[in-house]
Design a protein around this nucleic acid. Sequence first.
DNA 1: GCGACAG
DNA 2: ATCTTGTCGC
Length: 222
Amino acid sequence: MNLEEILFPENLEEADRIQAALLPKLKLIPLKKKPKMIAAADAAFSEHQVIAGVCLFSFPELELLETRVAVEPLTFPYRPGYLSFCEGPAIFKAISRLKHKPELLLLDGQGIAHPRKMGLATFIGILLEIPSIGCAKSILVGQFQDPRIKKGNYSEIVYRGEIMGYALRSRTGAKPIFISPGHLITPQESLNLIQLCLSEYRIPEPLRQAHFLSQKIKLAHL
DNA sequence: GCGACAG
DNA sequence: ATCTTGTCGC
């Protein structure tokens, strides 16, 4: 199965085959090296296009080093459980355009906290063979206790008896965000690294910047 | 069958 | 995600 076939399934059945075929490649092992460069990616949409933006930062300083974008036609409409086929092509291309190679990827969506453990972060992490973390604004599957109101508190996301990630209070008083490992990283490391990326807002700074970037490029295309 | 459902 | 202004609260 080549890259083209993986990124562009013709229907849900093919998408299922692809997710099942990639699952054996998933490895939730400790990071081999402390990341010095991390990249965050997000996507914006117009009627028939997906606009992906990726921002690369030094870590842990979080100084912006590089940004890239990619605008691709929307070939697969969004459906819960299949986000990677909707945003994946554009995000994959944007990340591929980076001159520097990130040692960790942050994606706007789930990692293994997914019905088939194949959320956007896991999917992209496996395709690029780069450690990745999923950071979503809402839950897809699993149960969790509401973390206490103060920033820094968290609780486990449990699905089918397994800990798939954490609900994290990233800002005092705000709704929690949902962290799950994507690939080549552990749940605990994922939580720790995301906390190191928090500023005064609910969304981790790298992802906020990627969001602004894709939004800005989208407007420029209108 | 009913309800849930990343972006 | 996207369509959209002001407004209530810490």
